[in-house]
């Protein structure tokens, strides 16, 4: 992984001729990673209240980016800009530039519904439809006309459930309601439903906050496997989770992006005192 190489590279740089201590600059750049989402000067207002202030950052592809920060800091607001979920809120205005693979996500020609098939979202509480496990997964592909036959749909459902690490647990009871699964299984069902429409970006808003540690570990393992194929952005209140699953971390405070960098750097040597205070539990 490109990101973890930064630290070792630092430790190896020795120049024998030096007589004074030399410190190599912070290797916070995520060199080599393709940029999936590029946000520039993004501002979000809810009516008169400004929720985000000039946020600019790049989100790398095939990696997990974590947004951390205290409640109300704007991390979820920023996340919801990526699939234009904020469009659904009255009085919400988004300005600035947000490009996905170089294309403006807010261009007039972009259909938000189509955009959302590419940018899937998983929420805090598992929200399966009151339908069978099979239909939960088949729902998206069906409305987008992705399968031409029952066999093709079966394949999509199986592939999606496998990707979400749920297939072995549910393959014999696909007709049973999704709501009858455990919390962790429901969340993986929702992830299966999300990947069924072939997104390339997956947004997760505190996906484990309602789960026990074992279900959480399963989701985290899944996130780690999925990052090979997707650009994943996760909002989490658990610092440990951000540290465990992400390669890049962004810290938000009062609507501003305070600091962003390689997760390893943020959790060992943050530059900004606000980041330092937050992750070490000193925020009053």
């Amino acid at each position: 992984m490109e990101f973890s190489a930064a630290g070792s590279e630092r430790a190896m740089s020795n120049s024998p001729a030096m007589t004074a201590p030399m410190v190599k600059a912070n290797a916070g750049s995520l060199a080599g990673a393709a940029i999936k989402i590029a946000a520039r000067d993004v501002n979000v207002h809810y009516g008169d209240k400004q929720a985000l202030f000039d946020v600019s950052m790049d989100i790398p592809d095939r990696a997990v980016t974590a947004f951390i920060g205290p409640s109300g800091c704007g991390k979820t607001t920023f996340l919801r800009c990526f699939n234009r979920m904020n469009d659904l809120i009255d009085n919400c205005r988004v300005s600035g530039s947000l490009q996905i693979e170089g294309k403006d996500a807010y261009a007039k020609t972009v259909d938000p519904v189509v955009l959302r098939t590419r940018v899937g979202m998983v929420f805090q509480k598992p929200n399966p439809f009151p339908k069978s496990i099979y239909d939960n997964v088949a729902y998206g592909p069906r409305i987008h006309g992705m399968a031409r036959s029952k066999t093709q749909m079966d394949e999509i459902v199986e592939k999606s459930l496998r990707r979400a690490g749920l297939w072995d647990e549910v393959k014999d009871r696909l007709a049973q309601p999704g709501t009858g699964l455990s919390g962790g299984q429901q969340q993986r069902l929702v992830i299966a439903r999300t990947v069924a429409v072939n997104p390339d970006i997956i947004l997760m808003d505190e996906p484990c906050s309602a789960l026990d540690p074992i279900a959480t570990a399963k989701i985290e393992e899944l996130i780690d496997e999925m990052r090979e194929n997707y650009c994943i952005v996760i909002v989490t209140h658990s610092m440990a989770q951000a540290a465990r699953v992400s390669q890049k971390t962004a810290f938000f405070h009062m609507g501003k992006l305070v600091e962003t960098g390689a997760t390893e750097e943020i959790f060992t040597n943050p530059r900004d005192t606000r980041t330092q205070d937050y992750i070490t539990g000193r925020f009053g």
């Binding site: 740089s13 030096m18 030399m22 410190v23 190599k24 060992t268």
Partner: peptide, 8 residues
């Protein structure tokens, strides 16, 4: 500083 001294 959070940084190693890297010179010899």
């Amino acid at each position: 500083t959070g940084e190693e001294i890297t010179a010899q």
